[in-house]
Computed example of a mutant assay.
Amino acid sequence: MSRPTAEQALENAARLLEAAELEMTNLPLMERYDELATSWLSYANLSVEVDRT
């Protein structure tokens, strides 16, 4: 099974942040989307670092 690329991770993060913006009245869900987006951003960063080595 192949791992997601950094680009795919960034796309996932962007999608989650857009979803978070739509949940302004549901703070717990908005925060969860933000946490997931942050995880994808961290993954993208690690993926880039791995690809450099």
Rank of each mutant, 00 (worst) to 15 (best):
1 M>T: 08
1 M>W: 14
1 M>V: 07
1 M>H: 03
2 S>P: 09
2 S>F: 10
2 S>T: 12
2 S>E: 11
2 S>A: 05
4 P>V: 05
4 P>T: 06
5 T>H: 12
6 A>F: 05
6 A>R: 04
7 E>S: 10
7 E>M: 11
7 E>K: 11
9 A>L: 11
10 L>D: 13
11 E>Y: 03
11 E>Q: 11
11 E>I: 15
11 E>N: 12
14 A>K: 14
14 A>T: 13
14 A>F: 07
15 R>Y: 07
15 R>H: 08
15 R>F: 12
18 E>S: 05
18 E>A: 11
18 E>W: 03
19 A>T: 06
19 A>E: 04
19 A>M: 07
19 A>L: 05
19 A>D: 02
19 A>Q: 10
20 A>V: 00
20 A>W: 01
20 A>G: 04
21 E>L: 01
21 E>I: 00
21 E>P: 01
21 E>Q: 14
22 L>Y: 01
22 L>M: 03
23 E>I: 00
23 E>V: 00
24 M>E: 06
24 M>G: 02
25 T>H: 07
26 N>S: 05
27 L>M: 14
28 P>L: 01
29 L>C: 01
30 M>C: 04
31 E>C: 05
31 E>P: 00
31 E>M: 09
32 R>A: 09
33 Y>C: 02
33 Y>M: 07
34 D>K: 01
34 D>S: 10
34 D>Q: 09
35 E>Q: 04
35 E>L: 02
37 A>M: 06
37 A>D: 05
39 S>W: 03
39 S>K: 06
40 W>Q: 07
41 L>C: 10
41 L>S: 14
44 A>C: 09
44 A>V: 13
44 A>H: 09
45 N>K: 13
46 L>Q: 12
46 L>S: 15
46 L>N: 09
47 S>K: 13
47 S>N: 11
47 S>V: 08
48 V>W: 09
48 V>K: 14
49 E>W: 15
49 E>D: 08
50 V>K: 15
50 V>A: 12
51 D>C: 14
51 D>R: 10
52 R>G: 05
53 T>R: 15
53 T>V: 12
